[in-house]
């Protein structure tokens, strides 16, 4: 899965899996985890992490040294990612977050560029057009987490570069870029 993925040297040091108590050390530790998590998610196309996903995500547990992250620790990491724009909580209770190795503004720019290049502006599209159909030009959207894509659209709507067409009960029917 991650053949080319390079594990950091502290991956095998047990204290890496214990949330440090002293502030300076903890900041450094969280920083390392941020970089590590983003890099891993990018390499493995992971876009959604729940605090209970310790067992699902290989970097969150190390069986060799028998250490794993606690849900509290994972929440700390996701929270810190959210602060720098690389994650967004999907719920108030901070259980699940979408991971954006490209931040949402980056995604918005990327998307704008894409639709401009493909001359797809001003025509309505559905989510399926972007997420399920194979777009050979850029596989970046295919399989993208829907909630992340919606976040990007919402962001673009805020910028005035996207119009959302909502059906009854507020369900998104389609959208077009302007």
């Amino acid at each position: 899965m991650a053949q080319t993925f390079e594990y950091p040297s502290f991956y095998h040091l047990p204290p890496f899996y214990t949330l440090q108590e002293v502030i300076a050390t903890k900041q450094k530790q969280i920083g390392l985890w941020q970089e590590f998590t983003i890099r891993y998610c990018k390499a493995n196309k992971i876009q959604r992490i729940s605090v209970n996903d310790c067992d699902k995500i290989p970097i969150f547990h190390n069986d060799t040294i028998q250490r794993k992250l606690s849900p509290i620790f994972i929440r700390e990491i996701l929270d810190s990612l959210a602060k720098i724009g690389n994650a967004k909580w999907l719920d108030e209770t901070k259980t699940t977050a979408i991971i954006t190795w490209r931040t949402i503004p980056d995604w918005a720019n990327f998307l704008s560029q894409y639709v401009t290049d493909k001359q797809m502006k001003n025509t309505p599209h559905t989510l399926n057009d972007f997420l399920n159909r194979e777009i050979s030009a850029d596989p970046g959207f295919v399989g993208m987490d829907q909630s992340l894509f919606l976040e990007v659209l919402q962001y673009m709507k805020g910028k005035g570069t996207c119009v959302l067409m909502e059906g009854p009960e507020g369900k998104l029917m389609g959208f077009k870029f302007v």
């Binding site: 047990p14 214990t18 108590e21 002293v22 050390t25 530790q29």
Partner: peptide, 24 residues
């Protein structure tokens, strides 16, 4: 020592082990 960022901790089920602070 921990307070001075010289060492860090590894909490295992029932005990705490200390390591030199490789983070910093």
């Amino acid at each position: 020592c921990e307070e001075n960022n010289l060492i860090c901790r590894d909490e295992v089920s029932d005990t705490t082990l200390f390591y030199p602070n490789f983070f910093l």
